[in-house]
Amino acid sequence: MSEKKTLPIWFFIGVLLLIYGILCLAAGISQFSHPPAIVLPDVHATFWGGVVLTVVGGGYTAFYWPRK
């Protein structure tokens, strides 16, 4: 690669998953009071999916955050 230092791919993945995680978490919380028309809405898949995405994305973002 050229001499410029490149941010690791894990950082980009972390940021995107964190954004998706926050969006899913917000949607999941609202689905507690307004369940969507899907099978097994009481499993709250969107909420738990949001939790996983936020934790994984947040972890990657923090760990690979560019430092001087």
């Binding site: 899913c24 949607a27 999941g28 369940p35 099978v39 809405p41 969107t46 949001g50």
Partner: peptide
């Protein structure tokens, strides 16, 4: 996907 994923997870 439509059967199990609500808004948010469906988009993902």
């Amino acid at each position: 996907l439509v059967r199990y994923a609500g808004p948010g997870l469906l988009g993902l």
